[in-house]
């Protein structure tokens, strides 16, 4: 029988030591983590960005990623949206009793690979095991610290009339990939989660322009929520063009079938930027030069009219409002 996580793995006993020392530390090792003190200690000075997020995705393995990759990318990307260079992450695991040890190994392996890809270090962590039924296999929390370069000042409230809106690629892939795995739906054109660390792409964008006003990764609530937040936070109007928003064929097919709107579906490897018009071409080119931004596109612009609202020019030339998503997103019934 395969090995499983027991309550004792979280009890501070020999088993918990083994878990930390045989599975977690060797895989994630770096000089700061290896100190194995209760707090990670490291020197750092300058303007810092600090963020935290919890990951409870079901299923924990999905096409294109897993909860480990997600937990690293989510925090790395949140730091990146402030223009920070992500450096150090914490990793806290809440494990449901009975989780296969091999599954945990796979997740930790994925955390390691993703952290290496992003160039960040896991410097501290925690593990708890809870009774069966008190969690759903594995929950992860990560927090992260990043350093913001002199002169970089990015916020969702800095969008200005005249700015161009740039999107780094096709929308809805993460949400559809997870949903299709969860519901056992198979699509002819398979949809793979876009889960990816975007810090290197953002670093390139910051090199290309000093006039990036706002950055945000359109996760829960999708592109529609991110743009609505920009419009509300900055008190501007945003006009986007439906025909310019990249959507993968598999996502479109799935959305047609399920009656969903890709604008509202979650992404985990996309970035939306509001950029001064004179720098838009340079930023777009720099995004397209990164492996996670090859499909980047200019999708709209910011106006002083329609304050607080996002308006979409539909494919057939009419206009409609893009609102914050309302309630749960449910499949249609006929």
């Amino acid at each position: 029988m395969s090995e499983k996580i027991l309550l004792a793995h979280g009890s501070g006993s020999k088993l918990s030591h083994d878990l930390v020392e045989k599975i977690l530390v060797p895989s994630l090792t770096n000089p700061i983590l290896a100190q194995l003190d209760d707090a990670a200690v490291f020197p750092l000075s300058g303007r810092l960005a600090f963020t935290t997020d919890s990951y409870v995705v079901n299923p924990i393995f999905f096409p294109g990623g897993d909860i480990g990759r997600l937990a690293v990318c989510g925090t790395v990307n949140d730091l990146s949206t402030s223009g920070a260079r992500p450096l150090y992450l914490s990793l806290a695991l809440i494990i449901e009793e009975g989780l296969e040890l091999d599954d945990l190994r796979r997740v930790i392996e994925s955390v390691r690979n993703t952290a290496a890809e992003a160039g960040v270090q896991i410097v501290t962590g925690d593990t708890k095991v809870v009774n069966r039924g008190k969690a759903d296999r594995l929950f992860i929390n990560t927090a992260g610290i990043g350093l913001i370069q002199e002169g970089v000042d990015i916020s969702g409230s800095h969008v200005r009339p005249g700015d161009k809106i740039i999107l780094s690629g096709g929308i809805g892939e993460h949400g559809i990939a997870v949903m299709s795995r969860r519901e056992g739906l198979e699509f002819k054109v398979p949809v793979v989660s876009d889960c990816a660390p975007l810090n290197r792409m953002v670093a390139g964008m910051l090199k290309a322009s000093n006039n990036i006003h706002s950055l945000r990764d359109p996760t829960r609530g999708g592109l529609a929520s991110t743009l609505s937040e920009f419009a509300l936070q900055s008190g501007v109007g945003i006009i986007i063009e439906e025909g310019k928003i990249p959507v993968h064929d598999g996502v479109r097919g799935a959305c047609e079938l399920l009656g969903l709107d890709p604008l509202y579906i979650a992404n985990e490897g996309k970035m939306v930027a509001a950029v001064a018009p004179e720098d838009a071409v340079a930023v777009l080119a720099s995004m397209q030069g990164n492996r996670y931004g090859t499909q980047a596109a200019l999708i709209g612009e910011v106006t002083a009219e329609h304050k607080g609202r996002v308006i979409m020019k539909t494919r057939i030339g009419a206009s409609r409002i893009v609102d914050l998503p309302a309630g749960e997103i449910l499949p249609r019934i006929c």
Binding site: T314, A318, S319
Partner: peptide
């Protein structure tokens, strides 16, 4: 009709 703004046309 609403989603595509057909009334406007």
């Amino acid at each position: 009709i609403m989603r595509n703004g057909i009334r406007q046309l």
